[in-house]
Design a protein around this nucleic acid. Structure first.
Lengths: 117, 117
DNA sequence: GTAAGAGCTGACATACATGTCAGGTTCAAG
DNA sequence: CTTGAACCTGACATGTATGTCAGCTCTTAC
């Protein structure tokens, strides 16, 4: 499929898809005229990339996490890295919860200050 | 107190404290020689600013959320904005939880692919 | 073969708090 | 009055995926 269709199917802009290609996150072939062509698998791949981005994994690490993009190979190291990221994300979630609690306290305090005035 | 001490007490770099001043988040007076001087309250204020930053509130909104930095005034609008931010942060926490779950699924899938190989 | 839509490249912009550096000034203790 | 630590300003850099624009080319249906 071409880039417009992949963009439509994934909700990711053509601009971003081209960039994924540049970063070697996504395999692309070219037509004789130079237009990008993608396999059907690309849809899943793009979605996986988006999950990792949402998890705060920088693009330069994604290639080492996702199964090798031309051979489909999966290695134990990938599982390990993925688990590291999960650990990191859990920690981040915990921090966010702590921040939320501090924010709750700020709301309460600010309300009190308002009443006192 | 001067900037070095405030930095030490809050764990925020002098560079950042100067920037808070520029952004009118923090009140600073000057010695005759031009060195910044801070009230003791500044410690609390800086910590509040950090909580808001951690919650993803951009600096340009902080001034409208924290009690007015020279009069100490607290308005109902501040409480409202603070509650908006709390709502936003809760949504963000929920998204993070969803992402974490998708990451869990990815870990499981990747493990399976590894076993299958 | 042509018109319109889709795609191409390359470049510049963004948000934002912080790091860091250079070159100069002030402060405070001796 | 000197010295060393602390501070000043101003500037440039950072990371990062995405938006957007300009100018040009390819594709495809007619």
């Amino acid at each position: 499929m071409r880039i417009g269709e992949l963009a439509r199917l994934t909700g990711v802009s053509p601009r971003s898809l081209r960039w994924y290609g540049e970063q070697s996150l996504l395999r692309e072939t070219r037509t004789s005229g130079g237009h990008r062509e993608y396999d059907d698998d690309a849809v899943d791949r793009v979605q996986a990339i988006q999950v990792l981005f949402a998890a705060g994994v920088p693009a330069r690490h994604v290639a080492g996490i996702l199964p090798c993009y031309d051979t489909g190979t999966t290695t134990p190291a990938m599982v390990a890295r993925l688990e590291e990221e999960r650990t990191r994300l859990r920690a981040q979630a915990a921090e966010l919860a702590a921040t939320l609690q501090r924010l709750d306290e700020m709301v309460a305090e600010t309300r009190l200050r308002l009443l006192a005035a």
